[in-house]
Design a protein around this nucleic acid. Sequence first.
DNA 1: GAAATAATTAAATCTAAATTCGATTAAATT
DNA 2: AATTTAATCGAATTTAGATTTAATTATTTC
Lengths: 215, 215
Amino acid sequence: MARKPADQTVSREEIIMAAAEVLRRNGYEATTMKDIAAEVNLTAASLYHHFRNKDALLLAVLEGGIEHVIQQLEPVALEEKPVVEKLKQMIAVHIVNLANNPAVGAAFVFEIRALMNMRIPPRNGGQFGQEDMDAFIEKRNKFFAQRDYFEKLFRDVIQEGIDRGVFRKVDVAIVTKALLGAHNWVGVWYRPDGRLSGQEIADIMADTFLRGLAL
Amino acid sequence: MARKPADQTVSREEIIMAAAEVLRRNGYEATTMKDIAAEVNLTAASLYHHFRNKDALLLAVLEGGIEHVIQQLEPVALEEKPVVEKLKQMIAVHIVNLANNPAVGAAFVFEIRALMNMRIPPRNGGQFGQEDMDAFIEKRNKFFAQRDYFEKLFRDVIQEGIDRGVFRKVDVAIVTKALLGAHNWVGVWYRPDGRLSGQEIADIMADTFLRGLAL
DNA sequence: GAAATAATTAAATCTAAATTCGATTAAATT
DNA sequence: AATTTAATCGAATTTAGATTTAATTATTTC
């Protein structure tokens, strides 16, 4: 036989979402292609029709996540408006994102290391050609650049606040790491059925953090 | 042959430290027994003389870490002194710990999931008896209890500050998670050769956070 | 210094997981 | 309707890695 009779066909996007969810539960290394496939009612072999290999699938999860956040964050960060408002809104965007998709958020915290340490070419070599490797490495580097840019968006706004005399003179690098650490952790502990919504959590955190920055 | 001639014999503690370091680099699932063994100039087989299996080794890393922190944190948390001072000191203890041993700190952030999802008995079953499993599960539960207790120490001090009218009325659960998230992240980005010492980072973070709590 | 114990190793086992392959069916195009 | 392209599967391949075993040497202990 081949192909399940009555069932729907599965899209690339659906696989990425499913992968994120399985990754959240088990982590990259502990997740098997079979696990991911099962989540969308496919066999492991079928996944290779959509992604070159497991690494490419992880990268796709992370890429999708960062692009989505940056796309929402950038306009706010670059807008001309009071820094306090701006930062408050950025915090909300980030945390609400994390709450809406904790799986992707958790991947950010947990799986970036897997991406860093990834052996290229992959373990068994496979039919990976030089071009495949180059393409993968380029995508990966782009991802890291976006991650750094994401952090920079926050850092720059905090710096702007200091320059404008709205925030006190803090160590911007450290304070930014502290803020993002608090955020990232949300992706780890947040549960959709919890007491508070993403927006409520964001408000509490923004409030506390902004008081910490106030003169 | 057997046993290296002139070399020193390796202790359980040394293996635990080595494991933490390798874990920090690669993560639990991606770390092989061979990797850990190499770090202490042993073969993989030798590790089984010191630990029942890979899981037990991870548990030992985490156990050692939490016990060490709690041991330092508890006296401070339970001491009778101004809450502000107390919390400041607790933050310093935690962060300095993380900075002194980022490997263990990173294990906390990254590897707890591996411990949660761990299949007992382990993959190939091995010579694991019911007693072994029971012992492992008990140790694991104890670890989780300690982790919760650790978080409670911080939560209680923040609550105390509110009760005494020293801190404003914040959502204690969320604010505690935010604080610990910021801390945990230190274990991820901190580098011993970086610009600031653990104590300096702690001071900056404590300062910002305490202002966030102030009335 | 013999016997027990601790630490180590090489080699063998055993399994799970990534990936490939060839066949098959569905859907879209021409 | 014929052909191409997309999606799927089962089975085979390959490999790495955890764990076991049996042997070897070092260190205590009596």
